[in-house]
Amino acid sequence: MVRVSPRVVVLAGGVGGSKFVLGVREALRRRGMDDTAAALTVVVNTGDDIWLSGVRLQPDVDSITYALAGVNDTARGWGRDGDSERVNHELQEWGAGWPWFTLGDLDLGTHLARTGWLRDGLSPTQVLERMSQRWPLGARLLPMTDAEVDTVVVLEDGSRLHFQEWWTRHRAALAPARFENPGIEVAAPAPGVVEAIASADVVLIAPSNPVVSIGPVLAVPVIRDVVATTAAPVVGISPIIGGKVVRGMADVCLTAIGVETSAAAVAAHYGSRETGGVLDAWLLAEEDDALAPEVAGGGIRSLVTPLWMTDAAASAAIAETALVAAGV
């Protein structure tokens, strides 16, 4: 019997992840679910976290939190709406921080609160739970792990940069040889992550960067295994439309790991659960309709649907298609 209130778990990160999570919440609300927080769990990438100017930043966590709270800057795609940058300018006058990495004043308030709680002994999971109490998010947010497993970009010349410097300062223009998350091989899933995935009615992989947003989540020991073995259908949404990335520089990341920038290649990268991968079904954009047989040939059921998340209604329609594809 299909549950009236399906338990949905989304693996997500970045702007694409935040837009998709908003769509999932709206899709559940349109099904008549008032208390979506009881049904929707989001496992958030923390691989792009960083210590900067003495505070702990969690860009993907904050992007998704702000989006669900309705306080995000939709024009820039990150940070708080209507934020100012007085403190950031003052930091630059002191020669502190990174002049090309902007911290808004309201955003910095979040980082200061988080850092204080961490230094008081709270875990990142407990911090995120406390953050979630400020606004009615309509979802339970969990970090992928409580361990610090920041992403390091190893360039072709062997030099190493924190992901944020490579992504924000250099705009991914420096050729990467590989991406590493030091310590991730011994990191544990955050409390509640494994249980949420194992007991879900559907697991959705958001149209986030497959390499640096979803990749770290699946690289945490046990998480990939539980996604691969959960009784719930696993449905992914392509972040590639018409052979191009929707936002950001995911194509550079894919090239670095030897994956073509195509919807079918990313599906193959995740792989079919029948052959040791993590997908049962894959949503393709209408522009990539011709790739459906290739995806199906890899043992992954393909569904063609509009994938441009132009507004809340479009994102909700995509999410509803994914839920229907999972049979919930």
Rank of each mutant, 00 (worst) to 15 (best):
4 V>T: 11
10 V>Y: 09
14 G>E: 08
17 G>W: 08
18 S>L: 03
22 L>D: 06
34 D>M: 05
38 A>E: 14
44 V>S: 05
47 G>S: 09
59 P>W: 02
63 S>Y: 06
64 I>F: 02
70 G>K: 14
76 R>D: 04
77 G>S: 07
82 G>Y: 03
98 W>C: 07
102 T>H: 13
104 G>L: 12
105 D>F: 07
115 T>I: 11
115 T>W: 06
119 R>M: 11
121 G>K: 10
121 G>E: 02
124 P>N: 11
129 E>R: 15
133 Q>D: 09
145 T>Q: 01
152 V>P: 05
153 V>Q: 04
155 L>S: 11
159 S>C: 06
162 H>L: 12
164 Q>E: 15
165 E>F: 08
166 W>Q: 05
168 T>C: 13
171 R>S: 14
172 A>G: 11
182 P>G: 12
185 E>M: 09
185 E>H: 14
190 A>M: 10
190 A>N: 09
191 P>R: 00
191 P>V: 02
191 P>I: 02
193 V>I: 02
194 V>S: 04
197 I>M: 10
198 A>Q: 14
201 D>C: 02
203 V>C: 01
206 A>N: 09
211 V>I: 15
230 T>K: 11
249 M>H: 14
250 A>T: 15
251 D>H: 03
256 A>G: 10
262 S>R: 14
264 A>S: 15
271 G>S: 04
280 D>N: 14
280 D>M: 07
293 P>Y: 00
295 V>W: 10
299 G>D: 03
300 I>T: 01
315 S>C: 09
318 I>E: 01
327 G>A: 00
